[in-house]
Computed example of a mutant assay.
Amino acid sequence: MPLHIAVDPLDGPQIAALLQAHLDEMHRISPPESVHALDLSRLRAPDITFWSAWEGDALLGCAALRELDAGHGEVKSMRTTPAARRRGVAAALLTQVMDEATRRGYRRLSLETGTQPEFAPARALYARFGFEPCGPFGDYRLDPCSTFMTRAIDGAHDEATR
């Protein structure tokens, strides 16, 4: 069955459970002051577009794009289910976010992820897509548990999928 990615209204029990598992894991790995994952109510805000990835009736992952300003977006809530890992779901979701950022005319796309070993696969994925380490952006502050990454949006990110 093909992967289907669509804007999600955040009202289904499967997405609520995936996001709760995401928050629970972030709180297990990081101290409370270093957890920047958004809860369901915050993800419903007008500055955020949220997508979910499905294979038939099976939820495989999610990702969000937060508008920081007219030229700068932030990747939020990237998560795949354990069954979807290493199947290209995260890459497909990140491509969706980047395509939307390009469509909106953003000049920059940034993200925050952890420094702990559990976040190494995420950091590697982001680097593969051209994200590079940077300093804190938006409302973030320096934090030993945070890695900040950014990339310019130039309309071409196909090198990441080669």
Rank of each mutant, 00 (worst) to 15 (best):
L65R: 04
F148M: 03
R103M: 07
S34H: 05
L111G: 04
D69K: 14
R44A: 15
R123W: 05
R44M: 08
V35I: 02
T150C: 14
I15N: 00
K76N: 08
L65M: 09
I153H: 03
C134E: 11
R85Y: 11
A63Y: 01
R79W: 04
R66P: 06
D24Y: 04
R151Y: 10
L94N: 06
Y106Q: 13
S41V: 11
F50R: 10
R141E: 10
G138W: 00
A58T: 15
I153Y: 01
A122C: 13
L43W: 01
R103K: 09
A122I: 15
P121G: 14
V35C: 03
M98D: 04
G114F: 08
S30A: 07
R87W: 03
P32Y: 01
G114L: 09
L68V: 08
R28G: 09
E33N: 11
R42Q: 14
G130F: 05
A70W: 08
R28Q: 11
W54H: 15
T80V: 15
A92N: 11
Y126A: 04
L125H: 09
S30P: 00
T95Y: 00
A84V: 13
D99K: 13
A91T: 10
T95A: 14
T80Y: 04
E67K: 11
T49E: 07
R151A: 10
